[in-house]
Amino acid sequence: MQDQDIYSELNSIRNLMERSAKFISLSGLSGILAGVYALVGACLAYYLVYGTTGGLDYGDHYVNEEAVVLQLFFIAIVVLVLSLSTGILLTVRKAKIKGEKVWNPSSKKLLVNMAIPLVTGGILILILLLRGYFGIIAPATLIFYGLALVAGSHYTFTDVKWLGIYEITLGLIAACLPGFGIFFWTIGFGVLHIIYGSIMHFRYDK
């Protein structure tokens, strides 16, 4: 057996082990776009809550009016739906280019593992919202989203784990500083997504 053969053999083994255990068609570009949507959504939310005159004196304002809460909720849902559909669309496209199936054992595991913390967090947040704890939204969404990323990271790029850890940290800090919810949300869902999306785009999307 030639040296060359052994190297190509080892390479194919390594490639298969990785490809079979991890879902690597996740699109980095969709992370960047999700971050941009979140930033736009945060700007809208900011104007809604503080008006055009508001400076940086967040702490004085708390959201109580039901009409405003409803509008904020609407913005959040639109950002979520846009991000998810962009993510799915770009991931399907990337999988096609790479000749990988989108619906394979690793993408299934990725989704199931992310869904458990996400659904748990979603339900908990809804329960707390209904009981009037509005302050919980920003820290709880960041923390549960971060937990979902860490759980899912075993089945895709390991960079996702670090994004998850940063989101959790940010969520915990947000819990200590009530009144700065939108600020932490903007960093967590906007800025961090853009940074990590760019890293993954330049590292893996080629």
Binding site: E9, S12, I13, R14, L16, M17, E18, S20, A21, P105
Partner: peptide, 11 residues
């Protein structure tokens, strides 16, 4: 066969 084994060892 070697490829099959690689996949089964990783999963």
């Amino acid at each position: 066969r070697l490829q099959i084994m690689s996949v089964l060892v990783a999963n």
